[in-house]
Write a protein that binds this DNA or RNA. Structure first.
Length: 480
RNA sequence: CGGAGUGUGGCUCAGCUUGGUAGAGCGCUACGUUCGGGACGUAGAGGCCGCAGGUUCGAAUCCUGUCACUCCGACCA
């Protein structure tokens, strides 16, 4: 295959420098830029619109399962945060504190929420008394703050946008079911709407959320072979609610503990969209969440009738329900093509004098650059088919990439070889000891356990690291 | 938190070694010619050289401090 001609000079190629490519795409697609505060981003219209579409699609899926939205404060009193020991120990190094109100020093300092388990529990401790009050299935869309030392746009920022769902239930089984249900919601959302295939499983003890009994994760594979934890769903048992003294009376007036879950997905997922689908020409957005699905580009727009026809087409597309825009600027067509590609708009429609004469338009797919001539009469229906195809093809391509980048290791040498010479996930058996996780990380070049899948394969009888009997099959990988 | 690097019009950067009128390209504004893969001409606008001290007749340039950002590592669910 001849190397594809590089059309856009301002974006570094992925093979040359993946990190620089990522930064270039973020900048050229105008998703966000840096603010004056380290790790806090300015979300620009193009980036925020993606988040809005993620919000609306995901929120709809949540509500179908009975989720109700609420909003709790940004400040948490220190005493509240202290209530669950594992939790505070997990978060202490990365919380920011408010110590003054105006000129006055506060008697008790407040932390800016890094997550809101404590606030939700505090509300429930005051309002839940009877089995009739259960379950509570709540969610909030908000931002949180974690004082990260190293930051990158979307992937790891100090302030980031997310949703955090929190629920409490009368029984262990019901809470566990909710944990898995939301994990499934994330999996289908990410795979269907974002066209990103994932590896799904449980976290090991050391990778679990602070205070959780079980953490379920979906892990996506970026184009450079690194994993990205894309959403998590946690089962808390009743340690957390007990710490907050949340009890309910059953029908026999006996007091019981409640069982808690929480689950979240953040703007980090935008980083995944960029790194899974993007190419050397820029961003590639899945049609379902693309803020603009089609951009109309008039050719030789100074010529009689071209702009009128292009605007007619735009109106027809909008009327048919597409998110459509026109680029009627004075730029040259080539410039407009490049920009549409950098922005990741899934399709463009070229319409020029020749097309008008023939009663047709040219649809060009962003992902393949395939040009499809469509009759003007059929465009409003054909475009939908093309967008559906793009959505499907993006997933298929990403799935093939994922499948090709999962290898297997039975011995430590194979593990090292896989990490160093093949990119992606490595499947290997594990004894269940944290010491072996650390050893593998140290020996095999920074890989961590990503998850234990629901359906484990039996690769061998013994741990890849220590040779003792294996308990689980684990997906390992370098992660963002 | 350790190592490295960078702060100069909106953006990318040159100028700094060897102190002496603030520069280029892109972008922006106006007009004209172009228009099926980042077109071109002409004329313009736009800069307390990150910030604070110091050295000097004179500092973007030298010295000290400080802040911010980027990359690598450690840390991070």
């Amino acid at each position: 295959m001849a190397k594809e001609k590089k059309l856009v000079q301002s974006i570094t190629s992925r093979d040359e420098d993946f990190a620089q490519w990522y930064t270039d795409v973020v900048r050229e697609a105008k998703l966000c830029d840096y603010s004056g505060v380290k790790g806090c981003l300015n979300y620009l219209p193009n980036g925020y619109a993606i988040w809005e579409n993620i919000q609306s699609d995901l929120d709809k899926r949540f509500k179908e399962t009975g989720v109700e939205n609420v909003y709790l404060p940004v400040l948490i009193p220190e005493s509240l945060l202290q209530k669950e020991k594992d939790h505070i120990e997990g978060f202490a190094p990365e919380v920011a504190w408010v110590t003054h109100g105006g000129m006055e020093e506060l008697q008790e300092r407040f932390c800016i929420r890094p997550t809101s388990e404590t606030l939700f529990c505090d509300v429930w401790s005051k309002t839940v008394q009877s089995y009739r009050d259960l379950p509570k299935v709540w969610n909030q869309w908000c931002s949180v703050l974690r004082w990260e030392k190293t930051t990158r746009p979307f992937l790891r920022s100090r302030e980031f946008l997310w949703q955090e769902g929190h629920t409490i239930h009368a029984t262990y089984e019901e809470a566990e079911e909710r944990t898995k249900m939301m994990w499934e919601v994330y999996k289908s959302f990410v795979e269907e709407d974002l066209a990103i295939p994932v590896v799904a499983g449980r976290k090991t003890e050391s990778e679990k959320f602070a205070g959780a009994q079980d953490t379920y994760t979906i892990e996506a594979l970026m184009h450079d072979g690194q994993a990205l934890q894309s959403a998590t769903s946690h089962f808390f048992g009743n340690a957390f609610p007990d710490a907050f003294n949340i009890k309910y009376a059953d029908k026999n007036n006996e007091l019981h503990s409640v069982y808690e879950t929480s689950w979240g997905l953040s703007t980090r997922i935008i980083g995944a969209i960029i790194m899974v689908h993007g190419d050397d020409s820029g961003l590639v957005l899945p049609p379902r969440i693309a803020p603009v699905q089609v951009r109309v580009i008039p050719i030789a727009q100074h010529k009689e009738g071209v702009l009128d026809k292009a605007n007619e087409l735009l109106d027809a597309l909008k009327a048919a329900g597409y998110r459509a825009k026109i680029d009627d600027s004075e730029k040259s067509p080539g410039w407009k093509f490049s920009e549409q590609e950098m922005l990741g708009i899934p399709t463009r429609i070229e319409i020029g004098p020749k097309d008008i004469e023939n009663g047709q338009v040219v649809v060009v797919r962003r992902d393949t650059r395939e040009k499809i001539v469509v009759s003007m009469d059929e465009i409003t229906t054909k475009l939908g088919e093309i967008l559906e195809t793009v959505q499907k093809d993006l997933y298929t391509k990403a799935k093939a990439f994922l499948d090709e980048h999962i290898s297997t290791a039975v011995t430590m040498d194979e593990m090292k070889d896989a990490v160093q010479n093949k990119k992606g996930f490595v499947k290997a058996m594990w004894c269940g000891e944290e010491a072996c996780e650390d050893e593998i990380k140290a020996q095999a070049g920074g890989v961590t356990s990503r998850c234990i899948p629901m359906e484990e394969e039996h690769l061998s009888d013994v741990c890849v690291c220590c040779g003792k009997p294996a308990k689980h099959m684990v997906y390992w990988g370098r992660a963002y």
